[in-house]
Amino acid sequence: MAEPLPRFRAAYGSSPQHLVAMIACFTLTGWVALRIAEEATAGRMLLWFVGAAVAHDLILFPIYASADRVLRGALRRSGHAATDGQSPAAHHPLPRRAGHTPSRPSPLNHIRVPALATGLLFLVYLPGILRQGRETYLAATGQDQHPYLARWLAITATLFLVSGVWYLVRQIRWRRVDGSAR
């Protein structure tokens, strides 16, 4: 017969400490659940709790991941390198050094980064941008939510503009270096 500890590990799949941590976590959660169960809105709270995880994993993540895939595909088709990096297949331990002409800058991150930023701003400040909770907003502040949509659009435009100008500068610099190398 094996020792008790390795036997426990083999059967449970981890150490006793792991089990203790799990039991502690679920005990506390169970206590909270019992306490919450008395609330009339307990069901909604559970829905939002589980819904938050599900919405992230099965909606938000797939959306931004596919948007990124579409973007990369579109750039590739339009003849841009989707990346300034190198395929791991071409396995260089270190980058090629002097003498190597830098590759043409990819617009990928110049689109991706402002898009990500503006999407994040939209998610975080969504109530103002979409004018949710008008009544409570008015009661609390004495104001309306009028300016936010325009401000968000202006920030979005600024982000893309800065990113675009930066891309142009990189492109021009690359042309110069490339030209002088030829």
Partner: peptide, 22 residues
């Protein structure tokens, strides 16, 4: 679920949009 729930309720609260109904 916990962190996203806290973030979502907190964000809605500071913007006065009590969409969650609890």
């Amino acid at each position: 679920g916990g962190i996203l729930f806290e973030i979502a309720t907190g964000l809605l609260n500071i913007q006065y949009a009590y969409l969650f109904g609890f």
